[in-house]
Amino acid sequence: MTATVSGTTGAALVLGDDALVLSHRLAEWAGHAPVLEEEVALANIALDLLGQARVLLSMAGDEDELAYLREERAFRNLQLVEQPNGDFAHTIVRQLLFSTYQRFLYEALAGDRVFGPLAAKAVKEVAYHQDHAEQWTLRLGDGTDESQARMQRGLDALWRYTGEMFRPVDGLESVKWQELEARWSSSVTSVIERATLRVPEGPRTGAWAAGAGREGLHTEPFGRMLAEMQHLHRSHPGASW
């Protein structure tokens, strides 16, 4: 019984932290997006992810304490979602790689006893995120020399963070991880090729990465992101609007 509870809690943190951290990164675009429609789109996607994070973190404990009072090493999100936004192309590549993964992961969890209700609902939202990322990948990849070069640069930079997405997670036993990876790979490859971009040849896990976000090991920019995200709550404990 105890094992089941801790498995569920751990898995809720894994899924919730992915959503929370990416939501925060996307919210950083507010006021900086290239056009107003994209500003609104990225904020909408961030809001969807924040809603998912609230449900998931509440399954693991107090949502505010988990979001604002944990140290860096206690977060279980993928290193991919904590990567800084870079330019718009870089953000779109991160969206393509992650939303495709999240969609297929939620699809696999739609019938899950614990995560089914959230996954079955969120998968429909994420389908729009994936569609948004695919449309932009095609437009920028098969666009000007400049937009294509930037998309390729984003792909080459982020590819090394995609390997850890398919490491089995304790508590998500209804997911077939190899099948998930095959589906992701085929979908992402097809979009990259249609966008006249190259699938990177490099490894999908950095040799220098001593571990993975799922183990609480994060990249350097994550600490700075957390400092900003948690600063207000930590400076004014217990404050309310």
Binding site: A41, N44, D48
Partner: peptide
């Protein structure tokens, strides 16, 4: 014009 609009449930 855009898949995302003034609220999460609408497109423009």
């Amino acid at each position: 014009l855009s898949r995302f609009s003034s609220t999460a449930c609408k497109a423009l």
